[in-house]
Design a protein around this nucleic acid. Structure first.
Lengths: 235, 235
DNA sequence: AAGTGGTCTAGACCACCGT
DNA sequence: CGGTGGTCTAGACCACTTC
């Protein structure tokens, strides 16, 4: 059972996506939303704040709540915590497994996952494929003390869907480091780059709400096909 | 005059930076903060929420407020709206002007700045230099209807400092697009890359709180020296 | 059971925008 | 000046963690 403000936020988000406000690009006023949803002002403000944080709307004091039109379909949104699924909408996303095994944390992984050397991990290496075109190579490490079970079926579909809905874990936050790096050509060939050896890299450290790291991953993207999007608010 | 919750947020942030909580990595409880600052619970929560959004802390229901230790000095934080100054702390940041002129918006700029073709703009091309090493090339367009005046002195020091404190404009939010692109070698040479022709690019579209775009910029970074950091929260 | 964060209300008053 | 968002309070009750 979600709290009211999250339900309301989700409902308004759906309305925005459905195009309900496309004529004016303006949402109802706060007072109107209070009446529509029959809740207090703070509850509306919490709901609206969520959408501001997501970059969907902005508020102008004395004027109203406006839709922040961003026509960036196909960009990977690194501010949100989607996976690729939401960034590419209707497109067909598949995963090809290159490697799937358990191993134990060495010093490098232990440092990055704030766990002990020797901690048992799942290691998953996949190629992400969008509309039958290889798009990225992803290597992930999952702490087995938290992600107690994985199988081929799960990692072929959506690992995060399984973690949230299957294991009922709640994901809190993530650090993402973005940079470029030279690669061996047999790596870049996997994502459709002939005679190219530079990749765009995203290193992702993902925490549960209680602060424990359960996933550390490194994704290599074909830099010719990849644009990242980050929406920032000044507060 | 800042509202209470922003003052409190700033004060707690300073305490965190000063290392006041380094022994426990834990902040006082919400009830304690209420007594310390003598304000209501919602005011403390607003203050704390700001720090959560900044990626400085995280809250665990039933347990406490914890510091999110991130040892990423020198990374460019694209979640915040700093400018380089805060990302590189004590380091010496200089700007070398390559070009400074007024021009009028063509179709491309008009599309990106949501202004009319023909709108007057300032165009600024600078090299950003950190500790005497060229670091990035930045080309910016400022809408002259909003940024009514610029001069060489301002763009040699900090344009944003001038916009906020001089012009008293209030910056609302920004879209950032990140990608890699091949460059002419005379461009990449400017940022210390010999025989390299790939740059890491950040395109930045910056809005005032009222939703108007005043700045559109494209920065090219030496990919060998650049790591970007993005802190995301799952809500 | 005690401690700690999360949600929600009802109402007051302030600050800014546009007419 | 009316409309609209921004801040703040005091208090109630819920949900989760820790012991």
């Amino acid at each position: 059972m979600l709290p009211k403000y999250k339900e309301i936020s989700k409902e308004i988000e759906n309305e925005i996506i459905s195009g309900k406000y496309n004529d004016t690009n303006k949402l109802p006023t706060v007072d109107e939303l209070i009446k529509i949803f029959n809740v207090s002002k703070n509850t509306i403000r919490s709901a609206v704040d969520l959408l501001v944080d997501k970059g969907l709307i902005y508020q102008v004091q004395g004027s109203g709540i406006f839709i922040r039109q961003i026509s960036k379909e196909g960009y990977i949104n690194i501010s949100k915590m989607n996976g690729l699924t939401k960034d590419f909408g209707a497109k067909d996303i598949k995963n090809k497994i290159i490697s799937f095994k358990t191993l134990i944390a060495d010093q490098y992984i232990a440092d990055n996952m704030k766990c002990k050397v020797g901690t048992e991990l799942y290691y998953v290496k996949r190629i992400r494929i969008i509309d039958n075109e290889p798009f990225s190579i992803e290597e992930s490490y999952f702490n087995k003390e938290i992600i107690t079970y994985l199988n081929e079926q799960i990692i072929t579909s959506s690992i995060y869907d399984y973690i949230i809905n299957g294991l009922k874990l709640s994901i809190g936050f993530a650090d993402k480091v973005i940079y470029c790096e030279k690669q061996e050509k047999d790596e870049t060939n996997l994502i459709g780059m002939e005679n190219e050896d530079i990749s765009l890299i995203i290193e992702n450290t993902v925490y549960l709400t209680n602060g424990l790291i359960f996933d550390f991953s490194k994704s290599k993207y074909n830099y010719k096909k990849t644009k990242l999007l980050s929406l920032a608010n000044f507060k």
